[in-house]
């Protein structure tokens, strides 16, 4: 079965556009993607700033202020995730359009007719909800580092 991402209306419509219209669409998407990325980077910068400040406060023995900043950091992470999901969905779409703009592009159906077990990574999702779930599961370096953000805040709180 062809992954849902490739069957979306936007993807199918893009494949039927003229070169000029494809180029225009790519420019528009690039601008939107750039804006999303800038906003995301700003939020991450702000989060790091909060974490740095919390670290300085902690070094100075100011536990209450450090706890406050870590709480803000935690809610900042939570508010960043939906933006991250939007960024990834837009970047996926942009990447696919970029590939589709190459002369000779073939949809997966060309090969899936011959072989069914092809893994298309994030393109293999069946809905945006699934993409979000996948990103939540795949993109948590805190867990990989053995950091539990909630516990970190509680630990600071109990000191």
């Amino acid at each position: 079965m062809i992954p849902w991402f490739f069957t979306r209306d936007e993807i199918q419509k893009f494949s039927n556009l003229s070169l000029k219209k494809k180029s225009k669409k790519m420019t528009e998407l690039a601008e939107t993607l750039q804006k999303t990325e800038t906003l995301l980077r700003d939020r991450i910068k702000e989060s790091r700033h909060m974490a740095d400040k919390a670290a300085r406060r902690l070094t100075n023995g100011d536990h209450e202020a450090s706890k406050d900043l870590l709480n803000s950091f935690s809610s900042h992470i939570a508010s960043t995730q939906p933006l991250m999901n939007t960024y990834v969905a837009r970047k996926l779409e942009y990447s696919l359009f970029e590939i589709m703009s190459i002369e000779g592009f073939e949809f997966p159906s060309a090969l899936l007719d011959l072989r069914k077990d092809i893994n298309f990574g994030l393109f293999a999702v069946n809905s945006m909800d699934e993409l979000e779930r996948l990103l939540m599961a795949e993109s948590d370096p805190f867990e990989e580092l053995g950091i539990d953000v909630e516990n970190t805040i509680s630990d600071e709180d109990s000191e």
């Binding site: 991450i44 790091r48 740095d52 919390a54 950091f73 992470i77 580092l145």
Partner: peptide
């Protein structure tokens, strides 16, 4: 740990 958390955010992107 707070600085590690800050680095984790960048790693996430």
């Amino acid at each position: 740990v707070p600085k590690a958390l800050g680095g984790g955010m960048r790693a996430r992107l």
